[in-house]
Design a protein around this nucleic acid. Sequence first.
DNA 1: GATCTCTCTGCAAACCTTTGCACTGAAGTA
DNA 2: TACTTCAGTGCAAAGGTTTGCAGAGAGATC
Lengths: 376, 376
Amino acid sequence: MPVTIRDVARASGVHISTVSRTFSAPHLVNPETRVRVLACAEDLGYRPNRAARALITGRTHNIGLIIADIANPFFPPLIKAAESQARHRDYHVFVADTNEDAAAEEELVHALAKQVDGVLLCSPRMSNSLIEQLSREVPLVVVNRQLAGLPCVLMDVGQGARSAIEHLAGLGHREMALLGGPRGSWTSRELRRAASAAARAAGAELTVLGPNPPTETGGLAQAEQVRRAGVTAVLAYNDLMAIGLLEGLDALGVRVPQEVSVVGVDDISLSRLTRPKLTTVATPTAAAGRTAVDMLLQQDTDFPRTARGGGATVAVGVRRTTAQVMLQTELVIRDSTAPGPYAGRERPGTAAAGPGPHRRADPGNPVVAAGDVVAS
Amino acid sequence: MPVTIRDVARASGVHISTVSRTFSAPHLVNPETRVRVLACAEDLGYRPNRAARALITGRTHNIGLIIADIANPFFPPLIKAAESQARHRDYHVFVADTNEDAAAEEELVHALAKQVDGVLLCSPRMSNSLIEQLSREVPLVVVNRQLAGLPCVLMDVGQGARSAIEHLAGLGHREMALLGGPRGSWTSRELRRAASAAARAAGAELTVLGPNPPTETGGLAQAEQVRRAGVTAVLAYNDLMAIGLLEGLDALGVRVPQEVSVVGVDDISLSRLTRPKLTTVATPTAAAGRTAVDMLLQQDTDFPRTARGGGATVAVGVRRTTAQVMLQTELVIRDSTAPGPYAGRERPGTAAAGPGPHRRADPGNPVVAAGDVVAS
DNA sequence: GATCTCTCTGCAAACCTTTGCACTGAAGTA
DNA sequence: TACTTCAGTGCAAAGGTTTGCAGAGAGATC
């Protein structure tokens, strides 16, 4: 019942190879023939069978997208952007959810490997060495994890943490807390490193609370600790946790931002809707999705996995690009931060004023803010 | 480089067909041989090539999921549940985002048709007749749209609207407004129909405002209208709009729920985080995803598209099940609704008390709450 | 008129797997 | 012993497409 290249060939009176070429190498076929073939194809409603095509070319024109938790509002914009970008390039995308489970991640990479030209690993939970190993089975691009020898797209949460801490210090906060993220998260480590350094530089003290699950509940559960720590400002691993903390502090009768300032990370759409509206470090999620897809596809065209002729299969060396892209983040100041106890007083070694409130600029199209390209 | 059935055959000293059978029909091969083959396969890291398998069996073991807007928080739980259920049954899922664009929907169904065993159409924007027509190209299950002759999974928003209106009437509201959804949405029509009837029955008056885009902005933009209409209670098409309305009313200095009560629909996770927390009609999104996948796969096993032998292709008749499943909704009462001006007074023809506040029960596993199965 | 060049088209193999059919040999039956 | 039955295996075709190679003309050049 499905109409094949063969039907089109019969209808237009040419050989199937000519029909094939009409679609995959139009310049090789006589314009007249071409229009005839195209007309017949249109008529019959012919659509090339990608499975068959994949069988011989070795390229499926599919990519896989492995996500820790689709329900986490951080991911949908990334998925959306990645899917859109992929489709733009005539690729379709498999989306798989691992429920934050490392074993599921591995299983999915295996399962998808034969069906895709590459896989995007978003905020993976598995070990570096396993990722390394899997990358020999299928081209991988890793998002939110730095891995020598593999293409990565990272968001500069370090810079974000610095901005946040400086903002808080500028407001006159000296006692701060960091709500850490899940164990083994690259982002969490990065955040902690940068926040500690920035706090030290600003003459502030930073208490680290965690690790915590990266959810609303995780934040809520730390409200008591935050109060007990006696800090006046908190930077949370992500907005979800910050929002949970907002809830928790409210329940304890602690007013935000009057008594405690709270800063999140991610700028999920929700953070504009809390009360008070959340000050947060915006991560370019959509840009990350687009960029990751671009890198995957680029890698794929540069170093195709196999090049097949009429039959001979030529294995290709393992050379590949391992560009690492760092995307900029930006502090978005809203209503959950306010002057602290030391407001107005001169801080040691710094001008008093913090950075002026900058509104967020939309990162727009595929933005590579700080491109650190390392060829291997 | 990739290891095929052929390599396994060579390694284990049997014919490729035996290897094939060890995987696809194990009972046909001698246990001894089987373990040997499996061992070799394991050793070599063999993974069946699904594209090749699809080519001959006609089943790809993939399904497509077409979504109006992944970034709309209504969808991620549905996607997550669908993906999980599909994978449970050894299917992978393509996810595609149409940006609320009907043309994109059609294009995607076409593009995916050859690559999947069926497609889930979620809250489609295209016309009934087009859906009808596309369903001849690839098995379809439609979510949130009722379509004679096609399998659908619906959420009983009518019942939800009734509950909401009765709840509001019970609280003593008589002047209410409905914020309508986008034009052409089945859910929106259903909501309007049921809400009007329920209001009439309760002796209340219902003003319909809209149609509106199903977003926060859409709700925000109607705040002024709501105030002008002089109503004391509002039912919104979805939570996003309700939240936008909350914002808008706040900006106008109208207090919720003291002056105006607001009810949403969907119970997205956000609605627990607004202030006041949103009273809303919970829709069983995850259950819908699971059920839709089940129906698609069921249909596919009942009436496979083609049954191929060693070569003969047998076209199968167009018979198919067209079960329509209606899933129950539930009113979740939180803090955005409060007694209205007629509280305590006897309403004509009804007992004064509204339905008691029932907390939401988690729908748990594949739940078909009210299964209205119509075989065609 | 012979030779060469060039464009277009056809031929056939190959991609990897499944599956109807046929074959083998051993066990069971008469 | 001669026959059937049956489990296990091999053979080969098929699925839809791509692509290196070769051939057929047409036109150009000498």
